[in-house]
């Protein structure tokens, strides 16, 4: 199944889930659970918290499916956004920092910057724009996106004041927007 039929199939399933079709919900879960669990686990690391976030994500998907608009994003992008939001909420609620385990994963994120043959054109373009930010700024954006780092956690890791981190993140995001939209 190529990417476009896959994406049309998921959009069709979300439309049926909006009508509370449970069979469609089961199919949607089967088709997307590993992707979403990967996303929430990367942010939360701890299995029990990741499961909690995954569960909440699908409850949201079930009850908000009627709000999904196929014109604005792919169904997968919409679902990953829900999962990331849930994971970030769970992470901010969880008191512990989980930093000991997070350190190991930092290296993974930071070395995964080289383009590979399987990368999509969109990812190569985004990586290229990220590369223009400079290493530290790029890594801040990636740690926030992939691992749900807060401004405080980034401030600690990069030994910068929290207010500076906020400024850097916002400037980086605006540069990314220019870089991406300028070439669209």
């Amino acid at each position: 199944m190529d990417a476009s039929t896959d994406s049309a199939r998921l959009a069709g399933l979300v439309a049926r889930v909006a009508a509370h079709d449970r069979a469609a919900f089961g199919e949607l879960y089967a088709a997307t659970r590993a992707k979403l669990f990967g996303v929430v686990r990367r942010i939360l690391i701890r299995g029990d918290l990741a499961e909690e976030a995954l569960q909440e994500s699908y409850v949201r998907i079930w009850s908000n499916a009627h709000r999904y608009e196929p014109g604005t994003a792919s169904a997968m992008t919409w679902m990953v956004a829900i999962a990331r939001n849930q994971a970030i909420d769970v992470k901010r609620r969880a008191a512990e920092r989980m930093s000991a385990q997070a350190v190991e994963l930092d290296d993974v994120v930071l070395t995964e910057t080289k383009p590979s043959a399987e990368d999509t054109a969109d990812l190569r373009r985004l990586r290229n724009c990220l590369g223009g930010l400079g290493d530290d700024n790029r890594d801040m954006v990636l740690l926030a996106y992939h691992q749900g780092y807060s401004r405080e956690e980034l401030a600690e890791k990069f030994a910068r004041p929290v207010a500076t981190v906020k400024t850097i993140l916002r400037r980086s995001l605006m540069l990314l927007k220019e870089c991406l939209d300028g070439r669209a």
Binding site: F25, G26, Y29, R33, A34, K35, F37, G38, V39, R41, R42, G47, A50, E51, L54, Q55, Y58, V59, W62, S63, T72, A73, S74, M76, T77, W78, V80, A81, E112, D119, T120, D122, L123, R125, L126, L142, Y145, H146, L176, K177, L180, D181
Partner: peptide, 28 residues
């Protein structure tokens, strides 16, 4: 979300434990 979503491909899929779906169904 659309601008940043290509990054989602960098995260490896992970199978969740089998019991999760049952708990989701209980919740809905």
């Amino acid at each position: 979300q659309r601008r940043l979503s290509p990054l989602d491909d960098e995260t490896a899929p992970v199978e969740p434990p089998a019991g999760v779906y049952g708990r989701i169904l209980e919740r809905i």
